[in-house]
């Protein structure tokens, strides 16, 4: 029983139930919209957590993949008339290829050098998006058509909520499976001791590359869907601050905790909503909250809670 609760399968069930019941509390489309953004961020954070939390490789550029995913499907569907069911997979392919191409040299680095390289990669992506205005509309952004399947348009917050909620449950299921498998243990071993993993036969480079690409694809898929959901995208989607927000979600919720990533996404998405009351001081309060939470809860929210529950069940 205790094992089952701590293993995450119970969490997956709980997550599904909460997501199914949550709309009962939504009063208006605006609530749905916020919930959808929470889900979007949660999916990215769950993917990024595989890289940062489990494999221990920092990325300060993941929003770049998110933004690139959004723009590839946006450009293909808006300018070249691609069907969205083709343009979205294409976005994943483009991002996966890019991530794979840069992963090897980048993941040879560690610590602050790795932070610098990933940060640089993310910024380069946004600079390109901003500069190639003939294709992307430049800093002003571009309009993206909705998803259309057999003449039926995916429209309305409730549908989008259902889609994103289902995707999050799927993402969490995949992540939990992966972590509790030989591949997942190898990844965690890379974090715990790279050389111990190597002598145990783990091709550490290969695994780092693999998880880098996987987490990039998580971000790209979410970015692509976001583009069609909001109908309008700007290069800021891939900006440096967005990358920082994603990493913060992972750290805030608790590194190496899939549910932590979701909680982190929830908190960090809702925080600005709660802070709108502070008006002009929003950035100040946001910065202060960021510092305070990390300083006082360095392990993150969920692992702290889990320790408590584990103790209680013993």
């Amino acid at each position: 029983m205790r094992n089952w609760i701590l293993s995450g399968r119970a969490g997956l069930l709980l997550l599904a139930v909460v997501l199914a019941l949550a709309p009962l509390g939504f009063g208006n489309p605006y609530h749905y919209d916020i919930a959808i953004h929470v889900l979007i961020n949660a999916i990215v954070a769950v993917g990024l957590n595989l890289l940062v939390g489990y494999a221990g490789q920092v990325s300060l550029g993941h929003a770049g993949f998110f933004g690139l995913g959004a723009y590839v499907t946006g450009i293909l569907s808006a300018h070249y008339g691609w069907h969205t069911l083709l343009s979205i997979p294409m976005a994943l392919v483009v991002v996966a290829v890019l991530a794979f191409a840069v992963a090897r040299p980048i993941l040879r680095l560690s610590g602050h050098y790795l932070a610098m390289a990933t940060l640089g990669l993310g910024i380069l992506i946004t600079i390109v998006l901003r500069t190639e205005g003939w294709l992307t509309g430049g800093p002003d952004g571009m309009i993206v058509p909705p998803i259309e399947i057999l003449g039926w348009q995916l429209f309305g917050e409730a549908y989008w909520y259902a889609l994103m909620a289902a995707l999050l449950v799927l993402a969490v299921w995949l992540a939990l499976n992966l972590i509790d498998s030989p591949v997942g243990r190898a990844l965690r071993a890379v974090h715990g001791s790279d050389v111990a993993a190597q002598v145990a036969g783990v091709n550490t480079t290969r695994y780092k590359v693999l998880i880098f690409v996987v987490s990039a694809v998580f971000a790209a898929l979410t970015g692509a869907l976001t583009a069609h959901y909001s109908g309008f995208i700007t290069p800021d989607l891939g900006g440096f601050m967005r990358s920082i927000e994603f990493v913060t979600m992972v750290v805030l919720g608790g590194m190496a905790s899939t549910f932590g990533a979701i909680v982190g996404a929830l908190v960090l998405t809702l925080l600005p909503q709660l802070l709108t009351g502070f008006d002009e001081l929003e950035m100040v309060v946001f910065g202060a909250v960021l510092m305070a939470v990390i300083i006082f809860m360095p392990r993150g929210l969920v692992p702290s809670l889990r320790t408590l529950i584990g103790r209680f069940l013993r």
């Binding site: 920092v58 932070a115 950035m283 946001f286 909250v289 990390i294």
Partner: peptide, 17 residues
Amino acid sequence: TIPLIIITIGASLFLRG
């Protein structure tokens, strides 16, 4: 490393704000 990066980014937002 990562929490420290976030803390200093929080500090920079605070000052900028």
